[in-house]
Nucleic acid binder design. Structure first.
Lengths: 167, 167
DNA sequence: AAAATATGTCAATACTACTGACGTATTATT
DNA sequence: AATAATACGTCAGTAGTATTGACATATTTT
């Protein structure tokens, strides 16, 4: 399998941007994400929690009454993976489940007061980091950053993502 | 621990951007990264590899002759974690180690032809995704996206990251 | 009554990561 | 030449996240 020619050279791809510039952004996405999650990670270890717990706390915090199936679709993990994480959060008193009022099969998710507090403490360094980055990049660039990130998301997820982030 | 007041409200933080807009970007970073790594992940499973293998292939591909210690500093993982991943990549013929010419303690890392091929195949969907996002966002925004991501990186890492991405 | 939905749970497995310690080869310092 | 520092490898033990595939229950829809 010498050269399968899976990557056309820059001039055969209709793009004005060089591959070197694209590689820069690939690497910056790695570095940015690495540091972006490092602050919450540090807090989470004190609770014996990991990133999965953070994600649940975040999305339930932003969407009280979220259903299990919706959370699974957001996180793109399996029921089993979510199950253990959710059980720990409930046992430790950060998350509550309530029966759906119209559909009693549903287990709607809510944060307790302790859960809300923790979610805020986890969000705080990330909010600070992003606010700082947007100030460095200059005002008015929040929309550009948002549009760029949004375009990175799979097309078929766009509608769902839009519905989730716009509160 | 009712309200520890760890998050000042928007008006006490000197920022023109509302928290809601910042939360949008927090969530978009999650969704963008989730989908950004999904294509390579799918390829990697065929080799029984994971994301850590991808990262090694990527950074060695971009920096032939990289030292173990440099790679550890980039990935921010421990020697032990890197050790197993590297051993698998070497056993499977994707990575080679060579003694440093001036310092024989060093194990300089290089990709084999198979390793280069795999690195390219893994990079290809990510290059495409980013090129597409930058075209959607409009030309000239590559620099803005790059600056925004760069600002998200820890300040004390800026010099190192700059040196790595600018090839 | 049957089918579909929402959720929970089991066992087995694997990837990534950690801490802490110890060992070896090589180079730099005194 | 002896000592210290560096670069790397490796051991054991543990933990968090994730998977597949199967099976079970309660509830709602058809």
């Amino acid at each position: 399998m010498a050269n399968t020619n899976l990557m056309p050279s820059a001039d055969t791809r209709k793009s004005t941007i060089t591959d070197d510039k694209l590689f820069e952004i690939i690497e910056l996405l790695f570095f940015a994400y690495r540091d972006f999650v490092s602050d919450p990670d540090e807090i989470l270890t004190r609770y014996q929690f990991g990133r999965a717990h953070h994600r649940v706390l975040h999305f339930v915090s932003r969407n009280p009454g979220l259903r299990i199936s919706e959370l699974l679709d957001i996180l793109k993990i399996t029921k089993q993976s979510l199950g253990r994480v959710l059980r720990q959060l409930i046992e430790d008193g950060f998350v509550e489940q309530r029966e759906g009022s119209t559909d009693r099969r549903q287990r709607l998710l809510f944060l307790t007061d302790a859960g809300s507090d923790l979610a805020l403490r986890l969000a705080e360094p990330q909010l600070r980091r992003i606010a700082g980055a947007l100030e460095t990049a200059g005002p008015g660039n929040a929309a550009l950053a948002r549009d760029f990130l949004y375009s990175l998301v799979n097309d078929e997820e766009h509608a769902k993502v839009k519905a989730i982030i716009e509160k």
